[in-house]
């Protein structure tokens, strides 16, 4: 192939200061991964460049880093593929984590969030432990297998939009891990888990931006599992949070008139009086700008929509 420019984020905790970028040029061969090149840089040019790595086969999850602005595993990212889009390769540490040194971050907060979701199976204490395996259908296995393949690389957490805006957010990895158990037919602690998950920083704080699903190197699809958790919470009548009320209000509005009553929904979803009042100025301004229709009209033929709603959702 050719000489490729690498721009690597450097931060030395012993000298302190802000991070900076350092440029390295690497002779790349076809089939070289980003990790291969990092190893060449470390081995041949500068032994101080610091990063984590181990298996180099996309299973240990050590080498996730931001490569050209998106989080990926260095070991399974082909340089040639990047060069189709980028002229040079920028390497930065995971975002949403404190940096220890160069491309190495402190994962403490990540694990604390995992630990917070009761990250182990809790079988029904009333059932005797069977002599052999607990039975599980192939479909029940399929339900949780996808999340069970999470390699804890943190790519999803690094690119999570909600977490970037609010560090209380549990973030996709911990939430997907919750589904690992909540979705498991052998687990009996749904209520306990979901009670925590519907609180502030939980499932309803996800913006559904699908960054996590997009960057996941193992196609774990965290966003989809967060939505499944929402479904579980609603099925367990956990309906107090704004997010849950938003869904219920939305359903009711569409099921009735065929389309969303945007004016009414926020007032229904938000119960807190202070929060309601804080929405008033924007509401008034919208009204004055002609952006808040006074009357919500059902679509023509709304009866058919109501019929389907009744059939599939009940009254």
């Amino acid at each position: 192939m050719a000489e490729v420019r690498f721009n690597i984020y450097r931060l030395n905790p012993e000298t302190g200061g802000d991070g900076r970028f350092q440029e390295y040029k690497v002779e790349c061969e076809k089939g070289d991964t980003v990790l291969d090149c990092l190893n060449k840089i470390k081995g041949e040019q500068d032994g101080t460049v610091t990063y984590r790595m181990s298996c180099r086969s996309a299973i240990c999850g050590s080498c996730a880093m931001r490569i050209c602005g998106h989080t990926r595993l260095a070991c399974s990212t082909q340089v040639s593929g990047l060069l189709e889009i980028y002229e040079e390769i920028t390497l930065e540490p995971l975002q949403n984590f404190p940096v220890i040194k160069d491309l190495v971050v402190d994962m403490k907060a990540y694990w604390e969030k995992i630990e917070a979701i009761m990250p182990y199976m809790v079988p029904d204490a009333g059932e005797p432990v069977p002599e052999k395996e607990r039975l599980q259908s192939p479909e029940q296995f399929d339900t949780v297998f996808e999340v069970a393949t999470c390699i804890r690389c943190s790519a999803c957490v690094s690119d999570c939009t909600s977490l970037e805006a609010d560090d209380k957010f549990l973030a996709p990895a911990a939430l997907a891990k919750s589904f690992r158990f909540a979705g498991d037919s052998r687990d009996a602690a749904d209520k306990e888990r979901l009670t925590e998950l519907v609180k502030e920083g939980g499932i309803w704080d996800c913006v559904r931006c699908y960054e996590c699903t997009q960057v996941c190197p193992k196609d774990v699809r965290p966003a989809e599992h967060i939505i499944q958790l929402r479904e579980k919470a609603l099925n367990n009548q956990m309906e107090k949070s704004v997010g849950a009320r938003h869904v219920l209000g939305f359903m009711e509005s569409v099921g009735h008139s065929g389309q969303l009553d945007e004016g009414k929904l926020p007032m229904f979803a938000v119960k807190n009086i202070g929060a309601k009042i804080s929405m008033v100025p924007i509401g008034i301004k919208m009204f004055l700008k002609g952006k808040l229709p006074l009357k919500h009209k059902p679509i023509p033929g709304a009866e058919d929509v109501q019929r389907i709603y009744k059939k599939l959702e009940g009254e």
Partner: peptide, 21 residues
């Protein structure tokens, strides 16, 4: 990136940070 809209009712501060950023 996300504009923040989906959580404007749930977590307004976070949503506004996304918008602003």
């Amino acid at each position: 990136r996300c504009c923040g809209f989906p959580i404007i009712l749930e977590n307004e501060k976070a949503a506004l940070r996304m918008t602003g950023r």
